[in-house]
């Protein structure tokens, strides 16, 4: 699954040009304070040996990165790509808080190595939006108040989206099954259920 082809294109020279973050591609590198740039250069010298190159699509954009092989998909999304809508709650694949879509299916991004997502299409909560406009599922969660503190909400919304991709007109049981991996400690579950049903009804 590792995208080795990318490492040939990805030279150290290119990397140093983009110092400040190991992310290249469509995510622009943040400018870096001069006092840190020497440090970054040293890292580039040593880390290119231990880092893996990876390319994948995130929210429709191609992303190529150099990462430590132990980086999880959730860490890649949050720490490197700054897509902090995806939350980490249990960090071991038990709660669904970090749910994103990988090739259209719900995965726990905290429980998946980023390198195992090489070449795949990832959609996060940010990717559901069209600019500042909400997706109908997101609107349904507001309308039916399918949240309280909101911390598990991105995961809930993505799990709901995965259900609707699989079956635009899911039964109540399919929704219960599909949402049962997403914990909500505020227990806004009845309204989460209403939100998903409402979103599904728009497909009818």
């Amino acid at each position: 699954m590792k995208d080795k082809s990318k490492s040939r294109v990805f030279s150290r020279r290119n990397f140093v040009k983009g110092i400040g973050t190991s992310v290249i591609g469509t995510y622009a590198a943040a400018p870096v304070l001069s006092k840190f740039s020497m440090k970054i250069f040293e890292e580039a010298e040593t880390e290119s040996k231990t880092k893996e190159s990876l390319s994948l699509h995130v929210n429709g954009k191609k992303v190529s990165v150099l990462i430590e092989p132990e980086t999880t998909l959730a860490e890649l999304l949050r720490n490197k790509l700054k897509l902090t809508g995806t939350k980490i709650i249990c960090n071991q694949g038990e709660c669904g808080g970090c749910t994103v879509l990988m090739n259209g299916k719900a995965v726990s991004s905290c429980h998946l190595l980023a390198i195992d997502a090489a070449g795949s299409e990832i959609i996060t909560i940010e990717g559901l939006m069209s600019g500042e406009k909400l997706h109908p599922i997101q609107e349904a969660f507001i309308e039916h108040d399918g949240l309280q503190c909101g911390f598990c909400t991105p995961g809930q919304v993505m799990a709901a989206q995965a259900i609707l991709i699989k079956n635009p007109k899911p039964s109540k049981d399919e929704i219960l099954q599909g949402m049962s991996g997403n914990l909500c400690r505020c227990a806004a579950y009845p309204n989460i259920m209403k939100s998903v049903i409402a979103a599904a009804d728009k497909n009818k």
Binding site: T84, M129, G150, T153
Partner: peptide
């Protein structure tokens, strides 16, 4: 605050 919470922002 619904928008902020469902959009991930």
């Amino acid at each position: 605050d619904g928008y902020d919470k469902v959009s991930g922002t």
